[in-house]
Computed example of a mutant assay.
Amino acid sequence: MSRLGNLGARLYRGEVGYDFVGHRKFWYGLSVLITITAIVGVVVRGLNMGIEFEGGAVFTTPKTSASVEHTTEAAEQISGHQAIVQELGSGGMRVQIAGVETDTSTEVKEKLAEELKVNSEDIDAQLVGPSWGEQIANKAWQGLGIFMVLVVIYLAIAFEWRMALAALVALIHDLTITVGVYSLVGFEVTPGTVIGLLTILGYSLYDTVVVFDGLREGSKGVTKQTKFTYSEIANRSINGTLVRSINTTVVALLPVAGLLFIGGGLLGGGMLNDIALSLFVGLAAGAYSSIFIATPLVADLKEREPQMKALRKRVLAKRAKAEEREGRDVYGDEDDGPQDAPPAGVTGQRDAEPHAASAASGQRRERPSPQRGGRGKGRPSGRRR
């Protein structure tokens, strides 16, 4: 068995582990800090919404010798709106201009072809009206809301409402962090981003449900024993699935990292960046929230129940008695205190008495061997001749 597999087995048996639930306040504070940073980034910098949501035009040019800076400046002067230009791997340019109306798109296309010294017929133009983009945005929010409601209902039925609430908090946490990273990085928000968000929410739920399932199995009949509290059982459930969570997260992040840094960074794929960034951030945030937020939050909610409070008291009382009993066994000889000094003239007598007793107890007492009838009487060995 490999070292990682051996570690996983020891974590599952509870031989080693990290106290996730015991240090939950630290991780709660860290999560709140990250979430506040993401919200501030969205408020201050905003989101770079794609034309699918705001409306506009996207012009894809053939190979040209013009630079990105020159193309950006020319597109903004021609259209009168802010332009986002990205160089493609084929040597062409992807020019995105928000706010361009359908009536003026043909004129913008022809002037852009003159500036870049390419044929206008070779430029691919995609036009999106503002009303259609607004409908796409509304549909995306509706789909996200329906997804959240269905998730909460399913978890409440399959597990319990506390686990459903904790999973919902973890999902909102993952969404907020992913959106905040998009705002800070400045990546464009497209329908591919929405697809990536829905994908990572499903992955986050998968990891959370695995831990919840182990917690449900481990907490059956929890009030009938006095060995572990509910928080300790929850912590054992996290440690039991820790190696599995790490392995699945790393395996999922490796291809996504290749898609983001190689496909999007080196090859210049526009849509690849939109999907890969949401997947990369969301997968990491989902693994983090299922371990450090969802399960500790369930333990906090369960510990408020009267039955769990009574269980904690019984467990702590039993441990206190066991420690007290162990302390008496280890230090019991020291509790008698010092002996009073014997009066003068009695020391020799007291010292002699134990020696006499030990000498008497050390003497062997010859016991006659049992005789069987009159056979062998008077013979040393008792044997017949």
Rank of each mutant, 00 (worst) to 15 (best):
V68A: 07
T64M: 05
H23W: 15
G99Y: 05
M49T: 12
G41E: 00
G29A: 10
A66Y: 00
P62W: 05
I78Y: 02
S67D: 10
G29R: 11
R45Y: 09
G80R: 15
V32C: 04
Q82H: 15
I34T: 07
G55W: 00
T60Q: 09
L30H: 13
E69L: 07
A83V: 14
V43D: 10
W27E: 15
F59L: 00
R24I: 12
M93L: 15
T102W: 08
T60G: 05
G99I: 15
A75C: 10
F20S: 12
G92E: 03
E73D: 14
Y18F: 09
V100P: 08
S31K: 01
S67Y: 09
W27Q: 12
G89E: 15
V95G: 08
G46Q: 03
M93V: 10
G41P: 09
Q96A: 10
T72W: 05
Y18A: 06
V95Y: 08
S65F: 09
K25E: 12
A57V: 07
I36E: 00
P62H: 09
T72S: 11
M93S: 13
I97A: 06
F20R: 13
Q82M: 12
D19P: 06
E76S: 13
V21Q: 03
G92Q: 03
I39S: 02
V40C: 02
A57H: 00
Q82L: 12
Y18M: 07
G55C: 00
A74K: 11
A83E: 11
G29Y: 05
H70M: 14
H70W: 13
F20C: 14
T102E: 14
T37N: 00
I51L: 02
G92L: 01
G92C: 04
W27N: 12
E52N: 14
G55F: 00
I36Q: 00
H70D: 14
V40W: 01
G55D: 04
Q96C: 05
L30E: 15
S79H: 08
K25L: 07
